[in-house]
Amino acid sequence: MKKTLIIFFLSFLAVNIKAQDNTGEQKKANDWVAELKLNNAKKEETVKNLIFNHLVAVKDWHNSHPASTVPAGINPRTGEKLNELHRSIIADSAMPETVHKTLMDGLRQELTPEQVIFILDKYTIGKVDFTMKGYKAIVPDLTEQEEKTIRTYLEEAREMAIDYKNMKQISVIFEIYKDKSEAYLNANGRNWRQLYKDYVNKVKAEKAKKSNEK
Rank of each mutant, 00 (worst) to 15 (best):
K207N: 11
I170D: 01
D92G: 02
F118W: 12
Q194G: 05
E206T: 12
S68K: 13
N39G: 10
V47N: 06
T112F: 07
K59Y: 04
H100F: 14
W192Q: 04
A161I: 10
V200C: 04
A137P: 01
I173T: 06
A41C: 01
T78R: 06
I90H: 02
N49H: 11
A41E: 15
V116Y: 08
L120W: 06
S68C: 03
K48L: 10
Q26H: 01
E80P: 00
A19H: 10
Y199A: 10
W32R: 04
R190Y: 03
W192F: 09
K165C: 00
A183E: 13
A187T: 05
T143G: 09
S93E: 09
D31I: 08
Q194D: 12
A72P: 00
K178P: 01
E114Q: 12
A183K: 15
L85F: 02
I125T: 14
K202M: 14
E80K: 14
T69S: 15
E175T: 10
Q169I: 08
Q145E: 15
A187W: 00
S68D: 07
T149Q: 14
A157P: 06
R193L: 13
K122I: 00
N22M: 08
K3T: 11
K178L: 05
N166I: 10
R77Y: 12
K136C: 06
M104W: 03
K207H: 09
A57K: 05
L142V: 04
M167N: 13
S64R: 07
V15D: 05
T78Q: 09
K148M: 12
K43P: 01
Q145N: 11
K43L: 11
L36D: 08
E206K: 14
L38D: 06
L107P: 03
N191D: 15
Q145L: 11
I162S: 02
A14Y: 12
L5P: 01
K209R: 14
I176A: 13
K81A: 13
V47P: 03
T98N: 12
A91S: 15
Q109I: 02
L195C: 07
T69P: 03
T98H: 09
F118A: 07
I117H: 02
V200M: 12
L185V: 01
K168E: 15
I125M: 13
P76F: 09
K42M: 04
E110G: 04
D163H: 06
S88I: 08
K43D: 11
K210C: 02
S211K: 13
R151Y: 07
M160P: 00
T69D: 15
L50V: 03
M167L: 13
E146A: 06
H65K: 07
G73I: 03
I176Y: 11
A205W: 07
A57R: 03
M95F: 00
Q26G: 00
E156Q: 13
T112Q: 12
D141V: 05
F8C: 06
K27H: 10
A157Y: 08
V116Q: 07
E159I: 15
K209H: 07
M104L: 14
L82H: 06
I74H: 11
T131R: 08
S93A: 14
